[in-house]
Simulated assay, not measured.
Amino acid sequence: MRFQNRTVIVTGGSQGIGAGCVRVFAEAGGNVAIFDIDTVAGQRLADELNAAGPGRVAVFACDVRDTARIAAAIEETVAEFGQLDCLVNNAGVHPPATPIDDTSIDDLEHLFRINFVSTYAAAKYAVPHLRKTSGTIVNMSSMTAVLGQHQSSAYAATKGAQLSLTKALAVELGPQGIRVNAVLPSNVDTPLMRQWAATLPDPASALKRVSELQVFGRMAAPEEIGRVCLFLATEDSSFITGQGIEVEGGASLDY
């Protein structure tokens, strides 16, 4: 019950890492707001977790490309649960591997709107409520922000922007009692990961190769990323801010 009587927003919370975060916060007794365009999957998850307890989960239709809708959904969340204690900026997309020659400026701007502008906007509109609770912001960046990734320059740039925003906001908001951190996962076993593998000639081999990048020989479970976010949202991490926590199973080691 580490998050009892507190409220968290998880953008992109209907599946994958976001759903893992929702599960962890709900199991810790929290009020959880799922922001997602896939309200069917979100409501299915909410129904499951509400039946199990102890937390409460509500779903708010939100396309994070629409910053006005982000602002409205945040107000709806506070009206529903009475306060806001944590924002997990998780919503994002990873396009297929594409060289810079084939990445149009429109593609770049579209990706930045989903992965970065939504993060900035949600933080902006959440801050007035987080000031009241000495709350926290957790931005879901990526190991690509610090390592790069082949034919993913646009994606890596959006994740690097999230990490830089994390550090700048930590400086700005720290004196106001708000902590801001980022989580940098490596490979996580999500539906999107398996959909990617399914596009390849040998999906099983591809998933095995990705798993073996970590020293444990496996990918992370979404809930493992969620538990790091819960740590960053509670007093257990009370002296941590402005950090990019690399949750990567040793994938960056043994170079």
Score class of each variant (00 low, 15 high):
residue 99 P to R: 11
residue 63 D to V: 05
residue 153 S to E: 08
residue 147 L to R: 08
residue 207 L to M: 10
residue 238 S to L: 02
residue 213 L to H: 11
residue 128 P to D: 11
residue 224 E to A: 06
residue 35 F to G: 03
residue 231 F to A: 13
residue 228 V to K: 15
residue 125 Y to Q: 06
residue 193 M to V: 05
residue 129 H to M: 02
residue 246 E to A: 10
residue 225 I to K: 14
residue 233 A to V: 03
residue 188 V to P: 01
residue 96 P to R: 15
residue 180 V to E: 15
residue 164 S to W: 01
residue 63 D to C: 09
residue 132 K to S: 06
residue 125 Y to K: 03
residue 94 H to M: 07
residue 154 A to Y: 09
residue 96 P to V: 00
residue 3 F to A: 12
residue 218 R to I: 10
residue 71 A to R: 14
residue 44 R to M: 11
residue 243 Q to N: 11
residue 30 G to M: 09
residue 91 A to H: 13
residue 48 E to D: 14
residue 46 A to Y: 07
residue 32 V to I: 11
residue 125 Y to V: 00
residue 161 A to W: 12
residue 13 G to C: 05
residue 241 T to K: 14
residue 106 D to E: 15
residue 164 S to M: 11
residue 150 H to T: 07
residue 207 L to Q: 02
residue 59 V to T: 10
residue 99 P to V: 01
residue 158 T to W: 04
residue 154 A to E: 08
residue 30 G to V: 04
residue 85 D to C: 11
residue 56 R to T: 01
residue 99 P to M: 04
residue 1 M to F: 05
residue 172 E to A: 14
residue 52 A to W: 01
residue 39 T to S: 02
residue 230 L to K: 11
residue 15 Q to G: 10
residue 9 I to H: 15
residue 44 R to F: 01
residue 202 D to T: 05
residue 22 V to K: 01
residue 86 C to S: 15
residue 163 L to P: 00
residue 12 G to I: 04
residue 12 G to P: 09
residue 207 L to I: 12
residue 154 A to M: 02
residue 248 E to G: 15
residue 37 I to V: 10
residue 158 T to M: 00
residue 221 A to P: 01
residue 245 I to M: 15
residue 237 S to Y: 06
residue 65 R to G: 10
residue 187 N to V: 08
residue 141 S to Y: 04
residue 110 H to V: 00
residue 128 P to K: 08
residue 115 N to E: 04
residue 249 G to S: 05
residue 168 A to L: 06
residue 80 E to P: 03
residue 186 S to R: 07
residue 134 S to F: 03
residue 251 A to L: 09
residue 172 E to M: 03
residue 27 E to F: 00
residue 140 M to T: 03
residue 194 R to S: 14
residue 175 P to W: 06
residue 252 S to T: 12
residue 169 L to S: 09
residue 119 T to L: 03
residue 106 D to Y: 01
